[in-house]
Lab assay of single mutants.
Amino acid sequence: MIVFVRFNSSHGFPVEVDSDTSIFQLKEVVAKRQGVPADQLRVIFAGKELRNDWTVQNCDLDQQSIVHIVQRPWRKGQEMNATGGDDPRNAAGGCEREPQSLTRVDLSSSVLPGDSVGLAVILHTDSRKDSPPAGSPAGRSIYNSFYVYCKGPCQRVQPGKLRVQCSTCRQATLTLTQGPSCWDDVLIPNRMSGECQSPHCPGTSAEFFFKCGAHPTSDKETSVALHLIATNSRNITCITCTDVRSPVLVFQCNSRHVICLDCFHLYCVTRLNDRQFVHDPQLGYSLPCVAGCPNSLIKELHHFRILGEEQYNRYQQYGAEECVLQMGGVLCPRPGCGAGLLPEPDQRKVTCEGGNGLGCGFAFCRECKEAYHEGECSAVFEASGTTTQAYRVDERAAEQARWEAASKETIKKTTKPCPRCHVPVEKNGGCMHMKCPQPQCRLEWCWNCGCEWNRVCMGDHWFDV
Rank of each mutant, 00 (worst) to 15 (best):
V5C: 13
V5Q: 02
R6M: 06
F7I: 03
S9G: 04
S10G: 04
H11N: 05
P14I: 02
V15D: 00
E16S: 09
Q25M: 07
A38V: 13
R42I: 11
I44R: 01
A46Y: 05
N52L: 00
W54F: 06
L61H: 01
I66F: 04
H68N: 08
H68D: 14
V70I: 12
R72P: 05
W74R: 12
R75V: 12
A82P: 14
T83M: 14
G84T: 12
G85S: 12
D87N: 08
S101T: 10
L112T: 14
P113T: 13
L119N: 15
H124P: 15
H124L: 05
R128Q: 14
P133W: 10
P137A: 12
G139L: 12
R140F: 10
S141Y: 07
Y143P: 07
N144T: 09
Y149S: 02
Q155Y: 07
D184F: 04
D184T: 06
E195A: 12
C201F: 01
G213R: 06
K220Y: 09
V224G: 08
N232C: 00
S233L: 07
T237K: 15
S246L: 01
V248S: 02
C253K: 01
V258E: 00
L261V: 08
V269C: 05
T270Y: 04
T270A: 05
V278P: 03
G292M: 06
P294H: 09
I298H: 02
E300Q: 08
L301G: 07
L307I: 13
Y315A: 04
L325H: 04
P335C: 05
V350H: 03
E353C: 06
A363S: 14
C368K: 03
C368L: 02
E370L: 07
A371T: 10
C377H: 04
E382I: 14
S384M: 10
T386L: 13
A390C: 12
V393D: 03
Q400R: 14
Q400D: 15
K412R: 10
K416M: 12
P419D: 02
H422M: 08
V423D: 12
V425S: 14
G430L: 11
H433F: 05
H433I: 03
P437H: 11
P439E: 05
R442P: 05
L443C: 05
L443P: 02
C446L: 00
W453I: 15
V456M: 15
C457K: 01
M458Q: 15
M458N: 15
W462A: 15
